[in-house]
Design a protein around this nucleic acid. Structure first.
Lengths: 159, 159
DNA sequence: TTATTATTGACGAATATTGACCTTAACCTT
DNA sequence: AAGGTTAAGGTCAATATTCGTCAATAATAA
């Protein structure tokens, strides 16, 4: 028995696949009417399903002629590749591991130089804050690094 | 159905792109007549769309031979861009601010969609950790967001 | 049973549109 | 040169139209 959330999710995905565009403009009110639910249900679907971590970007505007725009950047990753990232990163990584992984991805042209830079800056910032400001243990920091790195790479459907 | 504001916005952008100048002189009255709206609608379009944050400066003069001049800033030098970002981000930003800023930068082609995704994922992760795991105050989280965002964007603008 | 996920609705915030009234600058008349 | 006239643009408040948030409750999964 498919839940409403799943039905609406499928509907939006279909719109994305059917259209030639990389994005769809939705009307929250119309969608809610169509599926016989309250408008805020649409927010729930968006929040839980169309996240950056899954490769989506969402923009919206309130007021007259308002909209919710869902942009799909990357096709969902096959299970196998997702697992590969999981293995690659594991439960904890230090900064050296990270640099090695990123160099490899860039070499394989799965990551541009700028994208690699972003990932490096983000993880270094996290390290700095975790160490100097929050006094986290090395173990804790490495596990946070691993989590962040996995999310970043998964969002781009890399692996 | 596109809103009047968006139609007028596009018209002005087109004028800027078609002309070889970096600015256009507009007549509020003529524009209002052309698009069948009240003159103050034009002020609304200017105020909401042609802001410094979006890279525009506006000058105007009342009285006979009055005009509204829209100037498009060009941020060619990396240093100019970095300063611009500094101002945009300031000392604290929430997630909504971040989304706005990123959408803006992407629209101005200072950021690719994938880069934008990485920044979103990184800041969301930071928010999640700061809120749920470390119990940081909203103020503290916003200031950390600002710092992270500035470092990420600076790394691109200067790299 | 407990934890997570889904559904609902009341309330709040943002955006767009319109019109009445205000301010400023050029021009014209004396 | 002064002062009025005319032709711009500016401001603000009222209203309508969307979307967002948050907390309570229900359903489902572990």
């Amino acid at each position: 028995m498919a839940s409403l959330t799943r039905i609406i999710e499928r509907h939006i995905v279909e719109l994305l696949e059917r259209g030639s565009e990389e994005s769809v403009f939705l009307s929250r009110k119309d969608l809610a009417e169509r599926f016989g639910c309250v408008p805020s249900q649409i927010n729930y679907v968006i929040r839980s399903r169309f996240t950056p971590e899954r490769g989506y970007i969402v923009e919206s505007q309130r007021g007259g002629h308002g909209y919710i725009r869902v942009i799909r950047l990357c096709l969902d990753m096959p299970e196998e590749r997702a697992n590969h990232i999981e293995e690659l990163v594991g439960d904890g990584v230090n900064e050296q591991d990270i640099r090695r992984i990123l160099a490899n991805l860039q070499h394989r042209e799965l990551l541009t130089a700028r994208e690699r830079l972003l990932v490096e800056v983000a993880t270094r910032f996290q390290e700095e804050i975790g160490r100097d400001l929050l006094d986290l243990s090395a173990y804790k920091r490495e596990s946070l690094h691993a989590e962040l790195l996995k999310r970043l790479l998964r969002s781009l459907a890399l692996g």
